[in-house]
């Protein structure tokens, strides 16, 4: 759980403070209210239990992604580190839910 997971921002809903983020092809909704810097589509963020805790500077994204690439591609189902990474991705809600549903739910 110490390990945040990087993902690429696809879209940003500023009113809701939610970003649609791509994690190796899985699209999730990540909350932005505790992120350290404003994010835009194309940025990378570090996700921890469904919250972006840091915007990763673009020049550093590749270096940060390498470990995760290896974990997700090469590690087997039982691997603890890969399991933690998958859990972190699972922690964010699927991006299929509409913005309106999210708003309605909040009310």
């Amino acid at each position: 759980m110490c390990l945040g997971v990087p993902g690429k921002v696809i879209a940003v809903d500023r009113e809701m403070q939610i970003a649609t983020v791509d994690f190796w092809g899985v699209r999730k909704q990540v909350r932005l209210e505790v992120c350290d810097a404003p994010v835009d589509p194309g940025d990378y963020i570090l996700n921890h239990v469904g919250f972006a805790i840091r915007r990763i500077p673009p020049e550093e994204a590749a270096e940060t992604l390498a470990l995760y690439d290896e974990l997700l591609r090469l590690a087997d189902e039982q691997d603890l580190m890969a399991g933690d990474v998958r859990d972190e991705i699972q922690a964010a809600p699927d991006a299929t839910r509409s913005r309106k549903d999210a708003l309605d739910e909040k009310r």
Partner: peptide
């Protein structure tokens, strides 16, 4: 969870 995870709990508690 440690402080990193507690931040998420805090964010949910201030969000009605």
């Amino acid at each position: 969870g440690f402080e990193t995870t507690a931040v998420a709990t805090a964010a949910v508690l201030v969000d009605d």
